[in-house]
Design a protein around this nucleic acid. Structure first.
Ligand SMILES: [Mn+2]
Ligand SMILES: [Mn+2]
Ligand SMILES: [Mn+2]
Ligand SMILES: [Mn+2]
Lengths: 226, 226
DNA sequence: TATAAAAGTTAGACTAGTCTAACAAATATA
DNA sequence: TATATTTGTTAGACTAGTCTAACTTTTATA
């Protein structure tokens, strides 16, 4: 179980995390393509190809010319370790330093690269072993396990169904700030009053307040639990 | 007062902090030499020369070929900002995450480079505006002011004088762990029982316990207040 | 003051990470 | 299946930061 390799550069860590995130997105086939990866990281495909060769050399990915990219078990565990740090730091910023949920990501992008096993574990303890980050995303455990939670999109609910918000699918600042304006956060109860077939929009009741209309795009960006 | 330049690289920040620390060491003339600086940073003199040219270009230091190096006001304020972050993070690790005082430095070396004005200020607030770090070193304020404290070396005390530990001069792991073994920390009261002229060693009483002998090197590594 | 030693600089090379431009392979489509 | 489009690779160049080896300037010392 000696998966975590500490001799990774800041940049290599970012590539591994990106590949892990892409593997979550492409649920069925957890592979990625060069262009997809480059786009995700904001670099050119040529750059991604170069890095891929290096990651392959270190046995963090399997890949051959013109083929798909797949994390090895070591690569995956290293990616998970970064994700764990990212989400623990987001939780710290949110819970302890009063950052809002649209501000935490940018700073956590930096903090996730701090190298100190003790720091991560102590931080987790200090935060009381949180299972989910401020956006409702699961925080990997020290052993690499990732907590799961039943969640469906708000758009999947039928009329008159009641639910609670468990996570955001879209973590963009503009969406998070909109949610804040609507006084929706993790845990907020929502009732679907009406579904408008015409455009997929919904009429919803937030925390027992008066009815409100939200778009299909909105309903497809919020994870809830019945 | 727009001193803090945020477009500094990790490396540039380290050079500025090093120059600031050297300026504290060379109290009278706050200048540094190329070799001195290189040694402090663990790089070769040639490397330091190259960086110096870059820092000069950015008006963070004044310096001419074969001359001494001096921080400009902007360079100094930027260095102070890094030092502030370093010491606040050390305090966080020590106070909140139960790190010991010989463990905090290494991690703070990484954390001091995190870029977020909000983070620093919130952290400071979270820690209740501490004035000194776990080693007794002053934490610069947001405006760049550095708290001062009366302190002398333990070696300067006369026989029968009583004092309290306020800071360590030597922050090496081996010294800090020795202090821990002796149950000496910031605030511990010490009484000088006897001075041995032969080798400058002292017989001291730590927190009212039985007498103990310590070397001159030891007595010159601990700051105290009468 | 002449010379030796110390301090500092320059030139040239290397690595990591990035880019652009040109090219090659794989896939979609007519 | 032939061709166009998409996807991915290669070659060559650039920057930041580092090094070694050779050189120059300053300072100390005989
Ligand atoms: Mn995030
Ligand atoms: Mn998150
Ligand atoms: Mn320190
Ligand atoms: Mn300190």
């Amino acid at each position: 179980m000696f998966y975590i390799c500490s001799m990774l550069s800041y940049t290599e860590e970012n590539y591994l995390k990106a590949l892990l995130k892409l593997s979550f997105q492409n649920e069925d086939k957890p592979e990625a393509g060069t262009n997809e990866m480059a786009a995700y990281l904001g670099v050119k495909p040529a750059t991604a190809t170069d890095m891929l060769k290096k990651l392959k050399e270190k046995e963090l990915v399997t890949y051959k010319k013109y083929g798909k990219i797949l994390l090895t078990e070591t690569g995956k565990q290293n990616g998970i370790a970064i994700l764990r740090k990212h989400r623990l730091w987001e939780t710290f910023l949110y819970e302890k330093l009063d950052f809002s949920w649209d501000e935490v990501h940018e700073v956590a992008e930096q903090l996730e690269h701090i190298q100190s096993a003790k720091l991560v574990d102590k931080l987790e303890e200090f935060l009381n072993f949180p299972e989910f980050d401020p956006h409702g995303d699961p925080i990997p455990k020290a052993n690499g396990e990732i907590p799961t939670i039943d969640k469906i999109l708000l758009s999947e609910l039928k009329e008159n169904e009641l639910c609670k918000v468990v996570a955001v699918k879209d973590t963009s600042t503009v969406f998070l700030q909109y949610l804040e304006k609507l006084r929706i956060t993790i845990g907020t109860p929502i009732k679907v009053l009406e579904r408008i077939d015409f455009d997929g929009s919904l009429s919803i009741q937030i925390a027992g307040e008066e009815a409100r209309n939200v778009s299909m795009k909105f309903a497809e960006s919020l994870f809830v639990k019945r």
